[in-house]
C-alpha cells in the first residue's frame, strides 16, 4: 500500500517534469532530487558571495569614480544574487545559517574560479567578460530548470548578469584603446583567466557522472562540454573584436562542425584548486569566516532587541 502511494507520487513527479512544468516547494519530490538541488543551489549561492572578494579587491582602488560606482553596484548585485539563491535553497527545507556553516567549514564548495587572484585592474574587466560570460552560458538554461524557485531566481540573476558582462567588455575596450600600459594589463589578464574560465564548466562529460541524472530531472539542460563549446564559439569573435589573442595555439575554426576547435585545459590544475590548493582558497574562506564570526555579536544584538520589542508590545 505504502509502496503503491510512493510510486503514484513518483509517477506524478515524473509527469510534471516531463511536461516541462515546475516542481514547487511543497510538492513531493525524490530525496535525491532534493539533495542534488540543495547541493547545487548552495554551491551557486556560495559562489556569488565568495565571488565578491576578487573584484572587491579593487573597489577601494578603482581608477575613476564611474568605475568605482559600477564595481560597487556589481558587488552589491552579487550579494543580492547570493541572497536570491539562498532563499531558493531554503524553500527545500535547509537553513541559510546551516549552509553558511558548511561553506566556512569547507564542507560545501563554491566555484573554483574565485580561488584565482585579481592582480591588476584589468582583471575586473576580464572577470566581467570571461567569468561572467561563462556564468551566463551556464545559467541561462537554468531559467528553465524544473525546480520553480531556482528557475525564478535565475531569471533575475541572468538579467543582471548580462549587464555585468557588458560592463566588463566595455572596460576592456576602453583599456585596449588606451595606453600601452593598459593594453599590457589586458593581455596579461586574458592570459591568466582564459583557462580557468573554460574550467568553470566542470570536468569533461566522460568524467561527470552526475550529468545524466541532472538532465533527466531537467535541472541541467546541456552537458559540460556542450556549454564549454558554446562559450568558446561566443567568445572567440569577441576576442578578435577586442584585439586580444586567446592563449590557446590549438584554437582554430572547424568548418565541418561550424565551431571552434580548442585545446585541452589542464585538468590536474582544476583538481588541485578543487582540493583546496588553489592560489586563494584559504584567503577566501578566511575572509568569509571572519565576516561571519565578527558579525555574530551584531546579529545577536538584533535578535535580543527584537525580543525586547515584542515583549514591550504585549
Amino acid at each position: 500500500m505504502v509502496q503503491q502511494e510512493q510510486s503514484a507520487l513518483e509517477e506524478r513527479f515524473d509527469a510534471v517534469v516531463a511536461a516541462e512544468q515546475r516542481i514547487e516547494p511543497r510538492d513531493w519530490m525524490p530525496d535525491a532530487y532534493r539533495a542534488t538541488l540543495v547541493r547545487q543551489i548552495a554551491q551557486h549561492a556560495h559562489s556569488e558571495i565568495i565571488g565578491m572578494q576578487p573584484e572587491g579587491n579593487w573597489l577601494t582602488r578603482a581608477p575613476s569614480l564611474r568605475r568605482k560606482a559600477i564595481l560597487l553596484a556589481k558587488a552589491q548585485d552579487e550579494a543580492g544574487h547570493g541572497l536570491y539563491l539562498y532563499a531558493a535553497a531554503e524553500t527545500l527545507g535547509v537553513d541559510r545559517a546551516e549552509l553558511t556553516e558548511k561553506l566556512i567549514s569547507g564542507r560545501q564548495k563554491y566555484s573554483s574560479i574565485f580561488n584565482y587572484p585579481t592582480l591588476t585592474f584589468a582583471d575586473v574587466g576580464v572577470i566581467g567578460w570571461l567569468v561572467d560570460g561563462a556564468a551566463i552560458c551556464n545559467q541561462v538554461p537554468l531559467c528553465r530548470c524544473s525546480y520553480g524557485p531556482y528557475a525564478r531566481a535565475m531569471v533575475r540573476v541572468c538579467k543582471e548578469e548580462s549587464f555585468h558582462q557588458r560592463q566588463g567588455y566595455e572596460l576592456l575596450m576602453t583599456l585596449m584603446r588606451g595606453t600601452e600600459g593598459q593594453r599590457r594589463m589586458v593581455r596579461d589578464a586574458v592570459d591568466r583567466w582564459w583557462w580557468p574560465s573554460l574550467m568553470m564548466f566542470g570536468p569533461p562529460d566522460g568524467d561527470s557522472p552526475n550529468t545524466a541524472q541532472s538532465m533527466a530531472w531537467r535541472i541541467k539542460r546541456h552537458t559540460n562540454d556542450e556549454l564549454r563549446q558554446r562559450f568558446v564559439d561566443m567568445t572567440v569573435p569577441q576576442a578578435e573584436h577586442l584585439g586580444v589573442t586567446l592563449p590557446d595555439p590549438a584554437l582554430s575554426w572547424n568548418e565541418e562542425r561550424g565551431s571552434w576547435d580548442f585545446g585541452e585545459p589542464d585538468w590536474s590544475e582544476l583538481q588541485q584548486v578543487i582540493k583546496g590548493n588553489g592560489p586563494c582558497n584559504a584567503e577566501r574562506i578566511d575572509r568569509r569566516r571572519a565576516a561571519h564570526e565578527d558579525g555574530a555579536w551584531v546579529r545577536e544584538a538584533a535578535v535580543a532587541y527584537a525580543a525586547k520589542q515584542e515583549e514591550r508590545n504585549v
Partner: peptide, 9 residues
C-alpha cells in the same frame, strides 16, 4: 564590502 555582519547588510 565582504566584511558586513550579515549578507542583507
Amino acid at each position: 564590502c565582504t566584511r558586513a555582519p550579515e549578507l542583507e547588510e
